[in-house]
């Protein structure tokens, strides 16, 4: 009996610690932006909006958020369009060694991450004259996400019955019409999954924009966050909390939008 009670107590203690681990940063994000004397701990704030004003007056804060939006939108479009086309082709055309190719691509892309490929990517972009180019950076980010996106989307494409396409073809639909009228609409939940996944990944990507965008006026929020220091060189706690809050909003909005429209089903990669 006491053994049981002790086990229960132990269980709840562990759960509480784990929960606190996730809850504290959230609470900080909710309180620190509106605290007159923000710190790194959480406490009941002395309510004020002056931090918001300070952040809005920061020369690069809002620009960097706009940069983030541009960068992520471009990377997401690149990833989604190319992945959809590639996944469709790979799902329909029989080429020898297709599955090996797919797994190899996925494996290599997760082993050779941005960090490992940092130097070659930098040299490549330098020689292409794409350093300091937002589009160039978006291409690199998109390229990095493509293998996984293709892999996930191919499963969605596989689940679109061939008879749908054949039916459309018999009625005279050209390949472009088959894709636009039938395949893409039917695979829409999968594409929505990829859009959210790609956007969130690009939004949080620090390394590549840090490496490829030297001009602070072009850097996205994820990079700028690191440079938000006060005159003394320590973290500027009047700007960082509000900035962090603003930084997290687009991802939450996107998630809510897609979740409402499609009901979030992260079943890509798993055959149901």
């Amino acid at each position: 009996m006491t053994g049981f009670v002790l086990r229960r107590i132990g269980f709840y203690v562990v759960i509480t610690v784990v929960l606190a681990f996730f809850a504290v940063p959230m609470l900080w994000l909710a309180s620190a932006p509106f605290d007159a004397r923000p710190g790194l701990g959480i406490r009941w704030p002395d309510w004020t909006l002056s931090n918001v004003r300070t952040t809005f007056e920061h020369p690069f804060a809002l620009t960097s958020l706009v940069n983030s939006l541009i960068l992520c939108a471009a990377a997401t479009v690149v990833t989604t369009v190319l992945a959809a086309l590639a996944a469709y082709s790979l799902s329909r055309v029989r080429i020898p060694g297709r599955d090996v190719l797919l797994y190899l691509l996925l494996l290599l892309s997760s082993v050779v991450t941005g960090t490992a490929a940092m130097v070659p990517i930098f040299v490549l972009m330098l020689q292409l004259g794409l350093i300091n180019s937002q589009l160039g950076t978006a291409l690199v980010i998109g390229g990095g996400m493509l293998p996984a996106a293709i892999f996930i989307l191919k499963d969605f494409m596989d689940s679109v019955p061939r008879s749908y396409e054949e039916s459309a073809r018999v009625f005279g639909a050209r390949p472009r019409q088959v894709l636009g009228h039938v395949v893409l609409p039917v695979a829409r939940p999968g594409i929505a999954t990829i859009v959210v996944w790609a956007f969130v990944n690009a939004w949080g990507n620090f390394l590549l924009p840090f490496l490829l965008l030297r001009d602070v006026g072009k850097q996205p929020a994820a990079v700028l966050l690191r440079t938000l220091n006060d005159e003394g060189g320590s973290a500027n706690l009047h700007v960082i909390p509000v900035f962090s809050l603003l930084y997290s909003i687009p991802v939450v909005l996107l998630y809510l939008m897609v979740s409402k429209r499609y009901g979030f089903r992260f079943h890509g990669g798993i055959k149901s």
């Binding site: 749908y164 054949e166 039916s167 018999v170 009625f171 005279g172 050209r174 009228h181």
Partner: peptide, 15 residues
């Protein structure tokens, strides 16, 4: 599409 045939599939293939 150019054969002037129409087809009903076993699974009906309704979109």
């Amino acid at each position: 599409g150019d054969r002037r045939v129409a087809m009903v599939f076993q699974d009906y293939a309704l979109f």
